[in-house]
């Protein structure tokens, strides 16, 4: 079974995120970066499938700056077999379509059975790239899965996804794309020997030229959508706590909810 996981390096979830002074990006000073948490579920699921089948090859792929190599090494340290780092100055400002085209070009060289994505990257919260790649590769996909079972003939899988008020159970033929949601598994941590071993594992760096993609088909100039302005969320101000004993406070609350908020 050949499996790829597309990963993105993002600011750690507990980071304080503020817009930069010009409002065109976030203020990146002092931020620490991690593998997008939803992508970690993909890496873990790939490892589980490989362990379960007793064979397999796991490739992790990421588009990003030099620093992205750290995220790829982290995935090698938990057990992925090889990494592909796509890096090219021309990619700056690319939209999801361009990123998906680039990933597709890299993925198509690998003859894969399963491709994992996160359900969304926790920086842009977009949830588009995995579904775009599935469409571009003409593969079926199931998004936001929280359970996956590979059927014994290895040509099919059954995935679960949460919908409002229930769970959809979806059967899909392989090769297929899955985007991963929380609850799918518990990602493992890298062990010390794992970290040592990761240093020897292959990490190849590809440029747009290597993927035969024209630089003028990507980047900010060719984006159909661009980020315009970032601002902090509107601040809420604390209302005054309601006074009195429990009965008094509750009846004042009910009055306010009816007369002021008009929600009752």
């Amino acid at each position: 079974m050949k499996i790829a996981v597309c990963i993105k390096q993002v600011p750690a979830t507990e980071s304080k995120i503020k817009p930069a002074a010009d409002g065109k990006d976030i203020d990146r000073t002092g931020l620490s970066f991690v593998v997008n948490p939803y992508d970690e579920f993909g890496v873990e699921e790939a490892l589980k499938i490989k362990e379960q089948l007793g064979e397999g090859r796991i490739t992790v792929i990421s588009i990003g700056s030099d620093k992205t190599a750290e995220a790829l090494r982290t995935c090698l340290a938990v057990g992925a077999d090889q990494a592909i780092h796509i890096k090219d100055a021309a990619l700056e400002g690319s939209d999801a379509h361009a990123l998906a085209r680039v990933l597709t070009a890299a993925l198509q060289r690998e003859n894969l059975d399963i491709i994992f994505f996160g359900k969304q990257a926790i920086d842009d919260d977009s949830g588009a790239v995995g579904i775009y790649v599935a469409e571009m590769m003409n593969l079926p996909h199931v998004s936001a899965i929280n359970k996956l079972e590979i059927l014994s003939d290895e040509n099919r899988a059954v995935a679960h996804r949460q919908i409002e008020g229930g769970t959809e159970i979806i059967e899909v033929s392989l090769p297929a794309v899955f985007t991963c949601q929380k609850e799918l598994n518990e990602p493992r941590y890298a062990s010390l020997p794992g970290i040592m071993k990761a240093k020897q594992k292959p990490l190849s760096v590809l440029s747009l030229a290597d993927l035969e993609i024209a630089p003028d088909s990507v980047g900010l100039d060719n984006a159909v959508i661009t980020l315009d302005q970032l601002s902090p969320p509107p601040t809420r101000t604390a209302g005054t706590p309601l006074e009195g004993n429990a009965e008094e406070a509750v009846s004042e609350l009910v009055r306010l909810l009816r007369e002021e908020a008009k929600v009752l």
Partner: peptide
């Protein structure tokens, strides 16, 4: 279209502009 949407788990509100 110019769309307003939360990013970074709601820590940022962004506007994005469509070019077509």
């Amino acid at each position: 279209i110019t769309a307003t949407r939360p990013m970074y788990g709601g820590k940022i509100i962004s506007t994005v502009k469509c070019r077509t």
